[in-house]
Design a binder for these strands. Structure first.
Lengths: 196, 196
DNA sequence: GCCATAAGTCATCGATCGATGACAATGGAT
DNA sequence: ATCCATTGTCATCGATCGATGACTTATGGC
């Protein structure tokens, strides 16, 4: 049961539904205002429920945050032989340009970026970026400095996400996926080509 | 007088020095923990002074933050005819790879990124990125989609900064400027070239 | 050495924070 | 209809937050 469903239905006591609604409201709040800028009273207020339920169902604000941002990313990555440009193109569509409506349009990694003042969140952010993406990139590249070039590609994709949702730069925010993909492909292939 | 000087010298009543020390301590705190994660008692405690002085000298925490992050960036941008690749190379050195010791090694724009949960900070961040960098980039590029390609270049540089200092990805964090500049130049020129 | 002004301290306010445990209301099983 | 486990509410705690105004101390000119 989603948050919207929860609000429209008449109030029925349903632990699972309330828990899910709290989780979804928490995602929105954390995405918009960061960890420190969000209070458990805000989240509970969005759901229309008592703040004490947050602690009953999640134990603490920290654990609620951990569960809220821990969504499986549809990586679409595998050990197939697809070239890097295909992967970045897919990621551009599925990650950067995807509308993460559960996080108010922002990717969970960007949500964590906004709360990176807390060391635990920062560590988790680095771990997920490195393990989920950078290692895969490096594996598809040749050359001695594959790791560095892989992180350059990651920096480009991450920067695109930051510009689009966090900064809100005009051209990139309005651009469509089709307009952007060819330009990104140019930059990626320029890195992937082996030069002397 | 810097914060370090202030701490080593014997305590003398000096309004300008105390103000400057508070400002420097605030920069470090805000950079490391974000706006909401930093308290005026923390900042004053770093300087070894009473928290009330913060409000006497800066009026409010908001104004202290505004003054702390408002440092002039040595853009090195002008209306000369230098090609874009030269500009991005200079920015890579002076902005991304520069050690902003007053902000604990992070660029002020990244510091603002960490506090972008607050709408006022987010607006200021967008304004500075667009006005200081993106417009200059677009002016140096030809073609119909110069704005979009300019923001792609900006996204790359911003992503590099985020990867280096906020995420702390291994390869980019350890890489030298020399190792990185040629790779970045490849990506930028791939965008700047006019293709049919 | 005295004194007025500037610099710094102290006590405290009201609000909000995360968190806890006692209590009330609900609903299904019998 | 009764009972009991589950669900949700309420009151409240201690800590911390930004902010204010009265008070104390040091400093420079005389």
């Amino acid at each position: 049961m989603t948050y919207a469903d929860f609000m429209t239905q008449p109030k029925r006591r349903d632990k699972a539904a309330t828990r899910a609604a709290l989780l979804e409201a928490a995602r929105l709040r954390f995405a918009q205002h960061g960890y420190d800028g969000t209070g458990v009273r805000d989240i509970a207020g969005d759901v229309g429920v008592d703040p004490a339920l947050v602690f009953r169902y999640f134990g603490s604000k920290d654990r609620l945050y951990g569960e809220a941002v821990n969504v499986e990313v549809p990586a679409g990555l595998g050990d197939d032989g697809r070239p890097l440009a295909h992967i970045t193109d897919a990621l551009l569509h599925d990650v950067v340009f995807a509308d993460w409506e559960q996080f108010d349009g922002e990717h969970p990694l960007l949500v964590m970026l906004r709360s990176s003042g807390r060391p635990a969140i920062r560590d988790q952010l680095r771990e997920r970026i490195c393990a989920d993406y950078l290692q895969d990139f490096a594996g598809r590249m040749g050359g001695v400095d594959a790791d560095l070039r892989a992180e350059l590609v990651g920096a480009l994709l991450l920067g695109l996400g930051v510009m689009r949702s966090l900064v809100g730069s005009p051209a990139l925010s309005d651009a469509t996926f089709e307009e952007t993909r060819t330009l990104v492909a140019r930059m990626v292939t320029a890195l992937d080509e082996d030069r002397p």
